[in-house]
Design a protein around this nucleic acid. Structure first.
Lengths: 202, 202
DNA sequence: GTCTATATCCAGATAGAC
DNA sequence: GTCTATCTGGATATAGAC
């Protein structure tokens, strides 16, 4: 394989992915047709099908790329000192996801397809596992700071993390659907919840 | 209008709605075609289009009916004595919704469409408002029982309710998508969270 | 590698007989 | 009110010229 070709291909794929993402932001996800992406990319049908096997392939790859970048952001949080409050961590996470995806609606479309397509469900599951690991690291540190010993902190973190992810998903969902959704109020409410209940007082 | 007709129409509509719901349980939501519903109902295309304007109309009505029944269940909770713990209330609610819809995936499909279709979004918004009212009633009672005065209890309930709804949505979402989702663990984790933080001790 | 043009398919919706 | 048969539109994917 010639050496120029590989870079060229990668560049083309990036262009196509970017165009697809712009379409998804505007017209939703199932609402975006291949014709839309073709027009937005400035390329042609034939060119795109050379780089992606089919629509699902294209969509899957675009989504994975974006979400992967987000979990990279989160990885830094666990290292911050002083450790931010859980509400702040959720805030950082959901605003990053929302900004990068250019609109909350896209994620909801991804979930809907994942609920029907095993292939995409596997993909999402992998990313959620990764996310869970990062959140668990953060919450273990947080609970230790609240006075729990290492084992108890990790145990508690592991149990809590699915709910934290649920709270984040709820935020995204409501932001996407409810016209009067009050994002700051949602995040403020989190700050008033004591996730450390039952932990020994310092 | 003849008196028989009205009942007859209602009965037909119930049949069609039931058939549609069975299809949604099996094949998902966008995966269900009018042809599927037609076959499942035993009726014909013409017959169905007489009762429903189009697919979106049918789908919307079926969904609203189901959700309406669920919020009726919830209405009773606020009257229980002793008042159950918040985690228990969420448990009752999500299990009822899940059971009635015959699979978590359906709700996710509804959300996805609501994120794109203003008509369905209005519908969902209305139901969420209704739900919010019920949850607010419950939480106001709960916080009063925890020692807050009436005004503070209602204020706190109002702020917390969106998050509670988010937690419920997260449950439904994860149940629909993640193959290794541990429902009891999710609900147990809720029991360990202190939603009353900051309230005066009794 | 890329384009244009098009084949193929399948969905939603309707017309008109009964 | 209900059925059968069909129209219409739009989407994905491909064929073949350049």
């Amino acid at each position: 394989m010639p050496k120029v070709t590989e870079d060229y291909r990668a560049e083309r794929r990036r262009e196509i992915a970017a165009a697809a993402l712009r379409c998804f932001s505007r017209k939703g996800f199932e609402g975006t047709s291949m014709a839309d992406i073709i027009a937005e990319s400035g390329l042609s049908a034939g060119a795109i099908y050379l780089h992606y096997k089919n629509k699902q392939d294209l969509v899957g790859q675009v989504v994975v790329d974006v979400l992967r970048n987000r979990s990279a952001d989160l990885a830094d949080i666990a290292a911050l000192d002083p450790l931010p409050h859980p509400a702040e961590v959720v805030r950082i996470f959901v605003t990053a996801v929302t900004r990068e995806l250019g609109g909350e609606g896209i994620l909801v479309q991804v979930w809907a397809i994942a609920a029907r397509e095993p292939a995409l469900a596997d993909l999402v599951t992998g990313l959620v596992d990764e996310l869970s690991g990062l959140f668990t690291t953060y919450f273990t540190a947080w609970f230790r700071q609240q006075g729990l010993d290492a084992a108890a902190a990790e145990e508690r973190a592991r149990r809590l993390v699915p709910v934290i992810i649920g709270i984040s998903q709820g935020y995204v969902l409501q932001a996407a659907i409810l016209p009067r959704f009050d994002a700051p109020a949602y995040l403020d409410a989190l700050a008033a919840i004591d996730f450390t209940a039952g932990a020994p007082v310092l």
